[in-house]
Simulated scan of single mutants.
Amino acid sequence: MLPMVTDQTRRTLLKAALFGAAAPVMPFGCASTISREPALIGCSIIGRDKFAAVVADEHGMPITTLPIPERGHGVATNPQGHAVVFGRRPGTFFMVFDYRSEQMIKLQLAKPNRHFYGHGVYSHDGTLLFATEGERGTSRGIIGVYDVQKQYQKIDEVTGFGLGPHEVIMMPDGALAIGVGGVHTNGREPLNLDNMAPSLSYLSQYGELLDQVSLPDHKLSIRHLAHDGAETVLCGQQYRGEPDEYPALISMHTRGGEMQDLQAEPEEWARFNHYVASIAATDEWILATSPPGSCYGIWSKSTGKLVELNALPDASGVVIYGDEFRVSSGAGKVVEQRPLESKKSFSSGIQWDNHWSRII
């Protein structure tokens, strides 16, 4: 039997929604009283079966927190001051709040036959939210379209691009790029590893399929994405093949072209333990993290070659901030790094989960 959203889960989520509608997000207990500007938002683990979204300053130091009912994953923000946190796949909710006023806006529950895949993105003007969703029982991929100005009412669904979409990003030209995992799952259990069909798919905001490419090895499930500020997309993969094989886990692509693997030695790819989580890129550098590998790597975008491989316990989120990378860790570490120039790290006191989102 496929797992469903249980009555107890729904009661928990609805209770959280009612609480959020009546009360502001409470300030983080140990946050500094010095006024700091929100710059980064990520999910965190705060105790056994206790989770939160954390608003932090530019150095990853916490300013405020918002309890969330289940483990979170990706976060998206818009210019109007909204942040949306998505439940970890198969997610039962997304939660929207105002990171400036610290007020809850909406808790959206998944329908009983649907789930969220943990990611979403706003349109450039912040008026639409696009969320990766799946149909329980088939894993049919769906992009749900929500109208921000209508209290996040769902106004459209886009499908027909494959099974198991994970991360969706907005390209500078307004197109959507989707990492399609190609995996049919029961909860988190894969069911079709022998015939999975991952792809990198590009859609217009109206659902037109603009381009779709795949990797030669169909056991490389495309999951996490970033772009370089222009036309190049970076794809992070999860390898679902033989445990003693270590293929390239990151590829570059520009619409109309072919996939190009980034380069590293097999023993270096082995450090990533078959999984790439967060990716960030500039026109010069690419940084990718691996929580199970407790490491992150930096590649030269021009050569495609690995230039640094660094240990970091439970390496999690990464964003570009100015001319630096900011990297988070499930062990509470934050790293600020300029490739080949400087690196410093410190403790944030937060057990950061997989991803960070920069407030723009």
Results as ranks from 00 to 15, higher is better:
residue 44 S to V: 14
residue 207 G to S: 08
residue 132 T to C: 12
residue 92 T to A: 12
residue 148 V to K: 08
residue 9 T to G: 11
residue 150 K to T: 11
residue 346 F to H: 13
residue 110 A to Y: 02
residue 196 M to F: 05
residue 41 I to C: 06
residue 231 E to Q: 13
residue 183 V to R: 02
residue 62 P to N: 12
residue 128 L to I: 13
residue 84 V to M: 02
residue 320 I to Y: 00
residue 168 V to I: 15
residue 73 H to Q: 13
residue 236 G to K: 02
residue 212 Q to T: 14
residue 76 A to P: 03
residue 146 Y to S: 08
residue 30 C to V: 12
residue 137 G to K: 04
residue 118 G to S: 00
residue 124 H to F: 09
residue 201 S to L: 04
residue 210 L to G: 06
residue 136 R to H: 08
residue 265 E to N: 01
residue 29 G to S: 10
residue 195 N to I: 12
residue 257 G to S: 11
residue 209 L to R: 15
residue 278 S to Y: 00
residue 301 K to Q: 13
residue 344 K to P: 00
residue 2 L to Q: 10
residue 252 M to I: 00
residue 351 Q to F: 09
residue 357 S to L: 00
residue 173 D to N: 15
residue 61 M to G: 03
residue 153 Q to R: 13
residue 95 M to H: 15
residue 307 V to D: 04
residue 8 Q to D: 11
residue 170 M to G: 07
residue 347 S to M: 08
residue 323 D to W: 08
residue 125 D to V: 14
residue 63 I to C: 01
residue 157 E to Y: 01
residue 110 A to W: 01
residue 281 A to F: 06
residue 252 M to S: 09
residue 95 M to Q: 15
residue 200 L to P: 04
residue 280 A to N: 03
residue 250 I to S: 02
residue 58 E to M: 10
residue 106 K to F: 06
residue 151 Q to K: 14
residue 59 H to N: 09
residue 153 Q to M: 08
residue 60 G to I: 02
residue 249 L to D: 01
residue 81 G to K: 04
residue 305 K to D: 10
residue 87 G to V: 07
residue 83 A to E: 09
residue 56 A to H: 06
residue 29 G to W: 01
residue 127 T to Y: 08
residue 134 G to D: 06
residue 288 A to L: 04
residue 333 K to G: 03
